[in-house]
Amino acid sequence: MQRKSLIDAECPIARGLERVGEWWSILIMRDALHGLRRFDEFSRSLEIAPNMLTRRLNSLVEAGLLERQAYSQRPLRYEYVPTAKGEDFRVVLMAFVAWGNRHFAPEGESVQIVQRATGQPVQTVMVAVVNGQLVPLEECTVQAGPAASASMRERLAGVAD
């Protein structure tokens, strides 16, 4: 049975999951954003089957999160570099770290999010677009955007404030 495609879904979460929703893809992006570039580096880090790694790298290139760049002509070999779209995925991974630490690390944090320059711990926050003011996450919600369909507007009309 073929999996349903979410590529044309209206929901931005569904569209994003279509590109990175497979867990190997998320781990490859984690490693790429930490500086891994070559097939053998991803293979060693993830202990993933070569055929699966090839498929996941190809799908991330196709989705525009990674760019394939030749680093050797004989034999032809590529490295995989995050694109601007791939770099934007960093915030998703940081939110995953914070969530995982909060709910699934009873032994304590094995990975912390810190400010690079100071090494001081930071937390994920939302910022008001208009004035740059920090907004606690619990004060945030979603609403229909300007391009929302009638069904999306109806669906989100019932979202609790």
Rank of each mutant, 00 (worst) to 15 (best):
G86R: 01
P106M: 03
R155M: 10
F89M: 06
S151D: 09
E109I: 01
V91D: 07
E87D: 12
E109T: 02
A105Y: 03
A95I: 02
S59G: 09
R155D: 06
L156C: 05
L66W: 04
T54I: 04
L57C: 03
F89T: 00
T83G: 09
E138S: 13
L134K: 15
L134S: 13
A105L: 03
L93Q: 08
R74N: 12
L93A: 02
T54D: 09
V127Q: 15
L76M: 10
V61C: 09
M94D: 07
H103G: 13
L57I: 11
K85W: 00
L76P: 05
N101E: 05
A144M: 03
G145L: 12
A84N: 07
P146C: 10
F104L: 13
R68H: 01
R68P: 00
V129N: 11
A63V: 06
I113S: 01
V114I: 14
S151C: 06
A128V: 10
P121N: 03
R116M: 03
V114A: 12
Y78F: 13
T141K: 13
T83H: 05
S72G: 09
E154P: 06
P106C: 06
E47Y: 08
E138H: 14
G100R: 14
C140G: 08
E87F: 11
E154F: 07
M152C: 12
V97W: 00
F89C: 00
Y71A: 01
Q133D: 14
S151A: 10
E67L: 11
E67R: 12
A63W: 04
P82V: 07
Y71G: 00
A147Q: 13
A150M: 05
M52G: 02
W99M: 09
A148G: 05
E109V: 01
A98T: 08
S149A: 00
S59T: 10
G64I: 08
A84L: 12
R90T: 08
G100W: 13
A148E: 03
T141Q: 13
R68F: 02
R90H: 09
V142T: 14
A84F: 06
R102M: 09
L66D: 06
V125H: 08
V127L: 15
G119R: 11
V92F: 10
V125K: 09
R68A: 09
A128H: 14
A70R: 11
R116T: 10
V125C: 11
P82C: 01
